[in-house]
Computed example of a mutant assay.
Amino acid sequence: MYKKIVAGLAGALVLNILHEAVRNRFAGAPRINELGEEALQKSLRPFNLTVDNPRSLYWATLSSDIVSNALYYGVTATTSPVISGALAGIGAVKLPQHLGLNDEPVAATPQRKLLTVSYYLVGALVTRAVYKALQR
C-alpha cells in the first residue's frame, strides 16, 4: 500500500510542479491554482470561515491539491494511468461550471483545456512509472 501512496505523491508533485512552471512563464496557461482557491473558499463558507491572506490561501490550496491528487493517483493511476489522468483532467475542465465555480482559469481557451488535461495525464503516467519502479 505504501508504494501506491508514494507513487501517487510523486505524480501529484509532478502535476503541480509542471503547472507552476508553465503558469509562471505563459500568460495563456491554465490557472488551476485559481480554481482551487475559489473551491477552497467556497467549501469554507458553510463554516463561516475564510482565508483572507492571499499567500496563505495559495499554500492551503496547493497543499490540499497535492494530498487529494496523491490519494486519487495512488488509487487509480497505479493500474490505469491513461484513464485516470484523462478523467481527472476532463473533470477539472468540465466540473467547475456544474459546481458553481468559474471555469475560465482552466477552460477559457482550447489551449487551456488541452494543457489542463495534459497535466493530469502526465501526473498519472509518472505515478504509474514510480509505482512500477518501486515494485522491482
Rank of each mutant, 00 (worst) to 15 (best):
Y2L: 15
K4N: 09
I5G: 12
V6A: 15
A7Q: 03
G8L: 04
A10G: 02
A10H: 06
A10M: 06
A12E: 11
L13D: 02
V14H: 07
V14L: 13
N16S: 05
N16A: 10
I17S: 07
L18D: 06
H19T: 01
V22P: 05
V22G: 04
R23C: 04
R23F: 07
N24H: 08
N24M: 06
R25E: 07
F26R: 14
F26N: 07
A29I: 00
P30R: 04
N33H: 14
E34H: 14
G36Q: 05
G36V: 09
A39E: 10
L40E: 13
L40C: 04
K42C: 01
S43Q: 04
L44Y: 03
L44E: 04
R45A: 12
R45W: 03
P46C: 03
N48T: 11
L49P: 00
N53F: 01
N53Y: 05
P54Q: 01
P54G: 00
R55A: 10
L57K: 05
A60W: 11
T61G: 09
T61H: 10
L62D: 04
D65M: 11
D65A: 14
D65T: 13
I66G: 05
I66Y: 09
I66A: 07
S68N: 13
S68M: 14
N69T: 14
L71N: 08
Y72R: 10
Y72S: 08
G74R: 01
V75N: 03
T76K: 14
T76E: 15
T76I: 08
A77R: 01
T78H: 04
T78I: 06
T78Y: 10
T79V: 11
S80N: 15
S80K: 15
V82F: 12
S84C: 15
S84M: 05
S84D: 02
S84Y: 06
S84A: 13
G85S: 12
A88F: 13
G91P: 00
G91N: 08
K94E: 12
L99V: 02
G100L: 06
L101V: 11
L101M: 08
V106G: 01
A108G: 00
T109A: 06
T109N: 01
P110K: 04
Q111T: 13
Q111F: 13
R112C: 00
T116K: 02
T116S: 07
V117T: 08
S118M: 08
Y119L: 10
Y119N: 05
Y119H: 01
V122R: 03
G123K: 05
A124T: 12
A124M: 09
L125M: 13
V126F: 05
V126L: 09
T127M: 06
T127A: 10
T127K: 10
R128K: 14
A133V: 11
L134W: 09
L134Y: 08
R136I: 14
R136A: 15
R136N: 15
R136D: 15
